[in-house]
Design a protein around this nucleic acid. Structure first.
Length: 437
RNA sequence: GUACCUAUAGUGUAGUGGCUUAACACUCUCGACUUUCUAUCGAGCGACCCGGGUUCGAAUCCCGGUAGGUAUGCCA
C-alpha cells in the first residue's frame, strides 16, 4: 500500500500567474485528484524584494478561476503550515542545523555553502526517464549557497525542506528545473530523507519557439476571462499541451481530465502556444453547455459593453451560442438589436449591392411582412417572396440579414425577426432599402 | 563555452522495428445541408531535421552532425 498522493504548486509571487505556471499547477492537481490525494499550494516568497501583493492575489484568483481547488495552502490552512515560506524561517533553521552537524555546509564570505558529493547523480524521472548528471567536477558544479549572508535561505534548500515537511510524494514541475534536481537529490540524501518522485514536464513556448515568459502575449491567466474564454476550455487546452490521451479525443471536461490524466501520456518536447486552437476549444465547450448557462455567461460581457440587459436581450445573447468562439464576441454580434441606427457593415453592403435583385426583393419582402397577420410566418415568407419573384431563397436571406442587423453574420434570422417584431422589422427593411438606393 | 533535454504537416498530438499509401485535431481552400451567417458533415492542401550504421525491413534502435530549448546565481 503506497502513501496517499500529495502534490504541490509552489509559485513565487513575482508577477501575474502565467499560463505555464497554471499548467504546472493543473498537472499536479490532476495527478492528485486522480489518485485521491491532496493538492497543496505553497507560496515561495523568500525573495522579499521581488514579491508583490498583486502577484500573490493573482495566484489565488487565477487558480480559483481555473477551478484548481487547493486542499492546503495560505488561505486554506492545513497540518503542514504555514504555507508562506516567508513564515517558515525557524523550520529552515532547524533543518539547516542538521547540515551543520553533519558537516555538509561551510561558511564562505558570510554565506553558507552546501558541500556536494563528488559523484554522478542519477535521477529516475517519471517523464524524462533516467538522467545522469556528473557532479564529479567541482569547477562545473561548484558547491551551492543554501543560506545567504543576510541570513535568508535559498530556493533549493527551502524547496527541499518544505517538500520533506509537507510530505510531498510527487513533484511535477517544469523542465527548466531538471538540472536542479540533482542538487535537490543531494540535499535529500544529506538530510537523510527519501525524495519524492519527480516528473519534469515540457515547457510552453511562444510561436517563435522561445520559452513563454510573463511578458508574452496570452501569458497571463487573468486575461483569458476578459477575452471571453471559459475556464474549462483553457484547462482543456493547456492539458493538451504536452499531454494526450493517446486516443483521438481532444475535448474533455474537467472530470474526464481527472479520470484520464496520467504521467505516461506526457511527452518530452516543448509545445508552442496556439491561441487559435485555444479558441476552438472554447467554442467546443460553449457548444456543449446548455442554452441557459451560455446566456448567463454571456450577459456579463454584454453588460460590460455598457448595455442594460433585459429579458429579450438575454434571449438574443443566447441565440448566438453556436455563432461565437469567445464570449467577448457576443455584445458586438447583437449590438444592432437595440440600436435603431445600427451601422451597415461595408463589406456586407457591398455584397448585397452585388446582387442586382436585392433592392427589389427587399421591397417585395417589406410588403409581404407588412401584410402578415401571423408574424410567426415571417421567416418562411422570405423564401416564398424570393421564389415568387424568380429568385432562390438564399438570394434574399442574406440581404435580409444585412438589412435587419447591418452585419454579415449574427443570430439566427428567425430569432432576429421574432424578437424585433413586425413593425420594427419592416422599418429596418425600409431603412436599408433607402441606404441601398 | 559546458551539461542536459528535445526534434513527425504552419500548430498540437498519435505512431515504441513489419498491420503505414504515416493517423487525428486546429488553421486554410472547396463542396454538401435544393435558406443567409453559424454549427455539422464530406473532400483537398500539407510532415517523419540531415548523414551514416544495425536489420530481410527504421519515423521507430545506435552513432555523428545540425537546429531549438533549458540550466549553469548569495533569482525562484
Amino acid at each position: 500500500m503506497s502513501k496517499p498522493v500529495r502534490t504541490r504548486f509552489a509559485p513565487s509571487p513575482t508577477g501575474y500567474l502565467h499560463i505555464g505556471g497554471a499548467r504546472t499547477a493543473l498537472f499536479n492537481w490532476l495527478y492528485a485528484k486522480k489518485h485521491g490525494g491532496d493538492f497543496i499550494l505553497r507560496v515561495e516568497d523568500t525573495d522579499e524584494s521581488r514579491n508583490t501583493d498583486e502577484a500573490r492575489a493573482a495566484i489565488f484568483e487565477g487558480l480559483a478561476w481555473l477551478g484548481i481547488s487547493v486542499d492546503e495552502g495560505p488561505n486554506e490552512g492545513g497540518g503542514c503550515g504555514p504555507y508562506n515560506q516567508s513564515e517558515r524561517q525557524d523550520i529552515y533553521e532547524k533543518w539547516f542545523q542538521k547540515l551543520v552537524v553533519a558537516g555538509r555546509v561551510y561558511e564562505d564570505a558570510g554565506a553558507w555553502r552546501f558541500r556536494f558529493e563528488r559523484k554522478p547523480i542519477t535521477m529516475h524521472d517519471m517523464v524524462c526517464g533516467e538522467v545522469t548528471i556528473d557532479y564529479t567536477d567541482e569547477s562545473i558544479n561548484p558547491d551551492m549557497t543554501v543560506k545567504r549572508s543576510n541570513g535568508a535561505f535559498v530556493f533549493h534548500f527551502v524547496n527541499v525542506v518544505d517538500d520533506i515537511e509537507m510530505g510531498m510524494t510527487h513533484v511535477i514541475r517544469g523542465e527548466d528545473h531538471l538540472m536542479n534536481t540533482p542538487k535537490h537529490l543531494q540535499l535529500f540524501e544529506a538530510l537523510g530523507e527519501e525524495p519524492p518522485e519527480y516528473a519534469h514536464i515540457p515547457l510552453i513556448l511562444n510561436q517563435d519557439g522561445s520559452k513563454m515568459s510573463k511578458r508574452d502575449e496570452g501569458a497571463a491567466v487573468a486575461g483569458y476571462s476578459e477575452m471571453g474564454f471559459v475556464s474549462d476550455a483553457v484547462v482543456n487546452y493547456i492539458a493538451m499541451l504536452g499531454w494526450s490521451s493517446k486516443g483521438d479525443q481532444e475535448v474533455f471536461s474537467v472530470d474526464e481530465l481527472v479520470r484520464y490524466f496520467d504521467l505516461e501520456g506526457v511527452n518530452r518536447s516543448g509545445a508552442k502556444f496556439d491561441v487559435e486552437k485555444c479558441a476552438w476549444f472554447n467554442q467546443q465547450h460553449l457548444l456543449a453547455m446548455g442554452g441557459d448557462e451560455f446566456a448567463a455567461l454571456a450577459v456579463p460581457y454584454v453588460e460590460g459593453a455598457g448595455v442594460a440587459v433585459d429579458g429579450d436581450y438575454v434571449r438574443m445573447a443566447g441565440s448566438v451560442q453556436e455563432k461565437v468562439k469567445l464570449l467577448a464576441e457576443v455584445p458586438g454580434m447583437i449590438s444592432f438589436f437595440r440600436d435603431g441606427d445600427y451601422p451597415f457593415d461595408d463589406a456586407a453592403m457591398e455584397k448585397v449591392r452585388g446582387n442586382e435583385q436585392a433592392v427589389v426583393l427587399l421591397e417585395k419582402l417589406a410588403e409581404s411582412f407588412s401584410g402578415l397577420s401571423d408574424w410567426g410566418e415571417a421567416k418562411g415568407s422570405i423564401g416564398e417572396t424570393a421564389k415568387a419573384n424568380g429568385a432562390k431563397p438564399g438570394q434574399l436571406m442574406f440581404p435580409t440579414r444585412v438589412a435587419l442587423s447591418g452585419m454579415m453574420g449574427g443570430p439566427d434570422l428567425g430569432e432576429i425577426l421574432s424578437i424585433l417584431g413586425q413593425e420594427e422589422s419592416v422599418r429596418r427593411l425600409r431603412r436599408a432599402i433607402g441606404e441601398l438606393s
